[in-house]
Design a protein around this nucleic acid. Structure first.
Length: 503
RNA sequence: GGGUCGGUAGCUCAGCCGGUAGAGCAGCGGACUUUUAAUCCGUUGGUCCCGAGUUCGAAUCUCGGCCGACCCA
């Protein structure tokens, strides 16, 4: 058994094209530094297009704008004594015109042997071609970095999904949609951060390695700390640490970071995913819903410039107030044939599960069964933004009970496009109730529920020092980015999604 | 875990009613000073995912495996 981290690379997929390029590189090495780093890039393709794209051919010629730009050569058209190339940098693409007259025959001849994918530095004057395309008339042109491997096919790009994920760099080089999605992801996260900071939230970082995995019902990844000889877990949620900070007097905190859950992969699940969790003292769950709505609108505006966004053929309206329905209300709204009496009848619900071969936990109380029934029948129908409110206490071990109805909690989940986007609640700040709920979780774990929570004594101790009334919410960033980039799979919004080991 | 589809040149794909592998792009050589997926002529390049089986003969049929996408649980 070889160690995959140190074993040499498997037999290289060398081929004629790579050999050809290696030979070119060897020749370049003989002429001096093959990978020079002294080129002074001053201009960007996108900025030049924005600044000069609308100028007339004549005006541009009169201005004689000198530019100095570098990028990867994506296209190349050689026509004897003159050539065109398309360079791509982070901001976009621009065409370069290389001629014997202006760049010199020697440079132009060298250029003819450069390959698609090579990095090139060019200095020259902006002009417009007869077809009106903004182009750099090269005065000098240099090879900055040789690409030994060929790019994917220039017209179709990279089509193999696996390769898009495993070699994301190729996807980013060749696929505008992918590049745009990840740039949009960055904008969304920036917008969320700005939104929170503007409202006086403090951004914090809490541990990713937990001695006791807590804050969610999920299976953790286990690891081991050698020096402490201690079993540790990658966090499944930051919740319990963030609430410790509220105990400590940080009354408004948020964290944008990764959670890790040891579960299957799907178009909606990656084992590591990004959550934004926030907590605010002296607030309860209705306020959290308002804030969550505003935040999602702000993110949508930042990403798309609109609060109405297309998603896989649907038009999602994030501008209107989000619907707020209890579990039973939601089921009845989408399935009017079920009566309140039926939905409040354990035996009827269990009969339905059996008839539809649905998943449910037989020992759940009415609330838990109703929730499972909701998940089976209604969740995927919640295309437009909908808060489902008042979750049963038995499935919400960290949420505050309703004073009017102690078997339910002041909790909501937000669904958009049939997917859970956020989960928030008035926090349980009664240390004695929390201790009992943990005990209850421990009993469920002993009964075989792998996702039940552990008893976290330190967290109870923190609560015993007093947690002010607090509201907290987690928003799934990847799923939000999916929505705002019209991406069908979570893998389209995670740069390097988890994959099976390459064979 | 189950189902469907797929894996052929560096890339995008055809070939799959069994007869020993093709196109376009990329590469190489040549022509071409406003092209833009440039064009035109010539040309190199393959563990047809892996293994077994059937057969005179397998990219093609059968079985098993690996990997991926999508759907379902």
């Amino acid at each position: 058994m070889t160690d995959p981290t140190t074993a040499p690379a498997p037999a290289l997929d060398e081929n004629q094209i790579i050999a050809e390029r290696r030979a070119k590189l060897a020749a370049i090495r003989k002429q001096g530094p093959a990978f020079p780093n002294d080129f002074d890039r001053r201009d960007y393709a996108g900025k030049l297009a924005a600044a000069h794209g609308n100028q007339s051919k004549e005006a541009l010629e009169a201005a004689a704008v000198e530019v100095q730009l570098a990028g990867r050569m994506m296209l190349k058209r050689v026509m004897g004594k003159a050539s065109f190339a398309t360079l791509q940098d982070m901001s976009g693409q621009i065409q370069v015109y290389v001629t014997n007259d202006h760049a010199g025959a020697e440079s132009h001849d060298a250029f003819k042997h450069w390959d698609l994918g090579d990095f090139i530095g060019v200095t020259g004057i902006l002009f417009k071609t007869n077809k009106g395309e903004l182009t750099i008339q090269a005065r000098s042109i240099r090879l900055l970095s040789k690409a030994l491997r060929p790019l994917p096919e220039k017209f179709h790009g990279l089509a193999d999904q696996e390769q898009k994920y495993r070699q994301r760099y190729l996807d980013l080089i060749t696929n505008d949609v992918a590049r745009e999605a990840f740039m949009r992801r960055s904008k969304i996260i920036s917008a969320i951060r700005a939104f929170m900071i503007e409202r006086d939230f403090l951004e914090v970082e809490t541990p990713m390695m937990h001695p006791i995995p807590g804050g969610a019902a999920a299976k953790p990844f286990a690891t081991h700390h050698n020096a402490l000889d201690m079993e540790m877990f990658l966090r499944i949620a930051p919740e319990l640490y963030l609430k410790r900070l509220v105990v400590g007097g940080f009354e408004k905190v948020f964290e944008i970071n990764r959670n890790f859950r040891n579960e299957g992969l799907s178009t909606r699940h990656n084992p590591e995913f990004t959550m934004m969790e926030f907590y605010e003292a002296y607030r309860e769950y209705r306020y959290l819903m308002d804030l969550t709505e505003s935040l999602i609108r702000a993110a949508a505006m930042a990403a798309t410039g609109s609060t109405v966004v297309p998603y896989q053929g649907h038009e999602i309206d994030l501008g209107k107030p989000f619907a707020r329905l209890t579990i039973v209300e939601a089921i009845r709204h989408y399935h009017p044939q079920y009566t309140v009496e039926q939905l409040n009848d354990r035996d009827w619900l269990i009969g339905q599960f059996k008839a539809m071969k649905g998943k449910y936990r037989p020992h759940d109380g009415l609330g838990g069964l109703q929730l499972s029934f909701f998940e089976e029948t209604t969740e995927t129908l919640l295309i437009q933004p909908t808060f489902i409110i008042d979750y049963p206490a038995e499935v919400s071990p960290l949420a505050r009970r309703s004073d009017a109805q102690p078997d339910i909690t002041e909790r909501f989940e937000l669904f958009i496009t049939g997917r859970e986007m956020a989960n928030g609640f008035s926090e349980l700040n009664d240390a004695e109730d929390q201790a009992e709920r943990f005990m209850d979780q421990v009993r469920q774990k002993e009964a075989g529920d792998e996702e039940a929570m552990h008893y976290d004594a330190d967290y109870i101790r923190a609560l015993e020092h007093g947690l002010p009334p607090t509201g907290g919410c987690g928003i799934g960033i990847d799923r939000l980015v999916m929505l705002l980039t019209d991406s069908p799979s979570i893998r389209d919004v995670i740069l390097f999604p988890q994959m099976r080991r390459e064979s």
